[in-house]
């Protein structure tokens, strides 16, 4: 089961990330992973949270999009290199990747945005990698 990622369009100026984080804190949403992609005058804040529905409500008014990503715990057996190699060999393209800010279910996690989310999860599971679901964030 893929994980919901919320991406928010913000202008590149002081206080915008703070506004996003404050709104989520106000409704007690926990940010599990985030990354900011900058593109000159604007940036995209990408977030993985424990409660996506509440977050979307709390971020009312922001320009945002919601999409699915694959989240995999990083352990000795499931290193970033192993994951990347496996997906590369199966012709899965990784658009971008980042890691969680805090441990999820005991481990830091790798967040992958790929061209085919379902296929990626299937490949990972067939090769004995654990793929997290929204339930693991409870």
């Amino acid at each position: 089961m893929p994980i919901t990622q919320i991406s928010i369009f913000v202008e590149n100026k002081p206080g915008r990330f703070a506004e996003v984080a404050t709104r989520l804190a106000r409704v007690q949403v926990k940010i599990l992973a985030f990354c900011i992609a900058d593109a000159g005058d604007f940036g995209i804040i990408r977030l993985i949270v424990d409660r996506p529905e509440q977050s979307i409500k709390a971020l009312e008014g922001f320009a945002k999009s919601v999409n699915q990503v694959v989240v995999i715990p990083i352990t000795e057996q499931t290193s970033v290199a192993k994951i990347a190699n496996l997906l590369g060999s199966k012709k899965i393209n990784i658009d971008y990747a980042y890691t969680s800010a805090i441990p999820i279910d005991g481990n830091l996690a790798l967040i992958l945005r790929v061209n085919d989310t379902e296929k990626t999860e299937k490949i990972l599971m067939e090769n004995n990698f654990k793929v997290l679901t929204q339930k693991d964030f409870g």
């Binding site: 991406s7 992609a37 593109a39 995209i44 320009a63 945002k64 999009s65 658009d95 945005r113």
Partner: peptide, 15 residues
């Protein structure tokens, strides 16, 4: 202004 629902997670799309 962009529309609230009209952006992407990828900066390239917005560029």
């Amino acid at each position: 202004e962009v529309k609230p629902n009209a952006v992407s997670d990828k900066p390239w799309d917005i560029i």
